[in-house]
Simulated scan of single mutants.
Amino acid sequence: MTRVFNFSAGPATLPVDVLQQVQDELLDWQGTGMSVMEMSHRGKAFVSIAEQATETLKTLLNVPDNYKILWMQGGATGQFSAVPMNLLRGRDTADYVVTGSWGKKAVKEAARYCSAQTVARPVDDKFTHVPDRDDWTLNPEAAYVHYTPNETIEGVEFPDVPDVGDVPLVADFSSTFLSRPIDVGRFGMIYAGAQKNLGPAGVTIVIVRDDLIGDVLPQTPTVLDYAKVADGESMLNTPPCFTWYVCGLVLQWIQRQGGLKAMAARNAAKAGKLYAFIDASGYYRNPVKPEHRSWMNVPFTLPDAALDADFLKGAEAAGLSTLKGHRSVGGMRASLYNAMPEAGVDALVDYMKEFAKKNG
């Protein structure tokens, strides 16, 4: 078997160590005689898996005691509805900072439930930078301020956590979750789909402050009510048990690598190496303002889009998979999540050098 370097934006590459452990335990998890996929979610075995995963996540992120960690379903897209349903709390307006495609989707969905105001967005609608903080038109009476720290499609990333005063800050961390330490206490709530840095698709992590839950819109489905999910220990219905289990193994793997500080150092080095090559190549181009470039998702273009198909064909032959950019922006995109080894970046740079030499 030969594994490729998988640069997919998600579902994404997973640590080989974790996949091997899953393989070893697939038919018989720790002497139970059954797979995790076959276990009752109410049984002691799976409850122990779930509790350990939650505790490991809490330790890695240093989650304060006045926050709930919820394992939900529906992806970030489900949270686009769940956030206003749970966090409006009697108010009728919320602020949204839009820096890419996922921010656009979030504010559009929120508008079904409240007056969702776009308070910052690039004037030319070309998502290549984060609007200057002084230009944001925040409403101090808003129920919350929502933003997307990393835009997976456009490769735009906030360099730091924005200051929004006393209004709760909400963040869709899907494509940058666990890539570095974050101060959870600065947020009212964060959420993230698992399928980038945490595990297979099927689970969405929600970390929400206690005082923000319990007062939902009347039409809120029970499975999207944060207070009820918390009371049910994330098991109001049968959860995606296997995904939860794999996420727990990935969390343990992150601990073995040295935790989130070590992840940050690795991720900064990988992204820095690829951006440095792109900038110096005179052939490839990244459109994002340097200080707002993503560590996780690196889009780049060739001088002539007519060469894209040849580039992708050669990349696949070289064991470099899923480099095609999103259809809305074209070009290429290399996603460098936690499980992507630096050797993958080295292999990509070597291939890009050869392709430019041949076609430049």
Results as ranks from 00 to 15, higher is better:
K228M: 14
C241D: 07
Y226N: 13
A230K: 01
I182N: 12
T238I: 07
R180G: 13
A264P: 08
E233G: 00
Y245H: 01
V246T: 11
V203Y: 07
G188Y: 10
C247L: 12
A264E: 15
F187S: 01
M189V: 11
C247M: 11
P200F: 00
F177K: 05
G199R: 00
I205A: 08
G258Q: 06
C247W: 01
D210C: 11
W244S: 06
A194M: 06
L260V: 05
V184W: 02
L249Q: 11
A265E: 14
S179A: 13
V203P: 08
Q195R: 04
Q252I: 03
F242C: 07
G258M: 05
L249W: 02
F242S: 08
G232Y: 03
G185S: 10
I207D: 03
G232K: 04
A227L: 09
Q252A: 12
P221Q: 02
G188H: 05
A192C: 09
P239C: 07
I190W: 00
A192L: 10
G248M: 02
L251D: 00
D225H: 09
G248D: 03
V223N: 07
I182H: 03
M189N: 08
Y245G: 00
D183R: 04
A201M: 04
V229P: 09
K196M: 04
G185E: 02
